[in-house]
Simulated scan of single mutants.
Amino acid sequence: MMSFHWLYDPVETLDAWLASGLSGAGLLVVLALAALLGLRHATDPDHLVAVTALVGGERDAGPRDAARLGASWGIGHAAVLLAVGIPLLLADAALPAWLESAAERVIGIAIILLALRMLWRWQHRPATGAHTTRSAHQSALIGALHGLGGTGAIVLLLATKLPSTTDAILALAIFAPTSILSMTVCTAVYGRVLTHRHTQRAIPALAVFSLAFGAWYAT
């Protein structure tokens, strides 16, 4: 099976560089770096593929509708980060590896289903406005799954880099909402690009890519 690890190398390098500034930094610097990490977080390949599959088939949705999907994704993601991450930091505990692994498998399956849905919607244009609420709920759920799958790594990073639990919680409290902002902006851009009539011709190729990525991610 094709590997997509190469997609993660640039973002992991950037994250490592930003995280290196957390150790020994003052609180204001820590919060600024946490905000930058949150803004960057939306560009994780699995996040991009999932949201692309959500938006790609919505031929009657513009940037505003796409941004709404991104905000829903971000809210679901941030809610899980805070609901799970803060207790883990307070307890100085780690998320069970089996739970993270299970969440990642479910995310992979969800991406596959979204890719199939993208193909179907590309071929069968829905009635205007018929999909928006349902898609927003789906987006929030997928964001929550991504939050569960990534919470362990984020909590571990903050717990090991920062000197106190209070600092780590404050950093997480900044990271979460900035990730909502970045995903909202990203999906607004997707809404402008992917719903363009010329870009619609690339939807089948994007769907095939998403299917391959989802299968890899699930395993």
Rank of each mutant, 00 (worst) to 15 (best):
L116V: 11
L157M: 15
G152I: 03
K161V: 09
W122S: 14
G108H: 09
L172M: 03
R201N: 07
A79V: 12
I111W: 02
V185Y: 02
P163M: 00
T160A: 08
A79D: 01
L145H: 10
H196L: 03
T133S: 15
T195P: 04
L95M: 10
I203A: 13
R121K: 08
V189N: 01
L89F: 01
A61Y: 09
G149A: 15
H131E: 14
A159K: 12
P126G: 03
S101P: 04
I107N: 08
P87N: 08
L157S: 04
V185K: 02
A136C: 14
A103M: 05
L90N: 03
T151W: 05
A110Q: 06
T184I: 03
A91R: 12
A67F: 07
P87I: 06
A173T: 14
L116H: 02
G143V: 07
H146Y: 10
L114K: 09
L194D: 04
T199C: 13
Y190D: 08
A102G: 14
R105M: 13
S179R: 05
I142K: 05
A136N: 12
L148W: 02
G62Y: 06
I169M: 06
A71C: 09
L113A: 15
I75Y: 00
A173K: 02
D65K: 14
A188R: 13
F175K: 01
W120C: 09
I203F: 09
L116C: 12
H137Y: 13
R59D: 03
G143A: 10
G143K: 01
P96W: 06
L141M: 08
E104D: 13
H124M: 07
L172T: 02
G150W: 03
A159R: 15
H77S: 09
R117C: 08
R134A: 15
A140K: 05
A136H: 06
T132A: 14
A94G: 11
L82A: 04
A130N: 10
V189Q: 00
V106H: 06
R117P: 05
H196C: 02
R201T: 11
T151R: 04
E104P: 07
H196Y: 08
L148I: 10
T133M: 09
L99C: 08
M183C: 09
G85T: 01
Y190F: 15
A94R: 14
I174R: 03
T184P: 00
I142V: 15
I111H: 07
A97K: 08
G147T: 01
L99D: 05
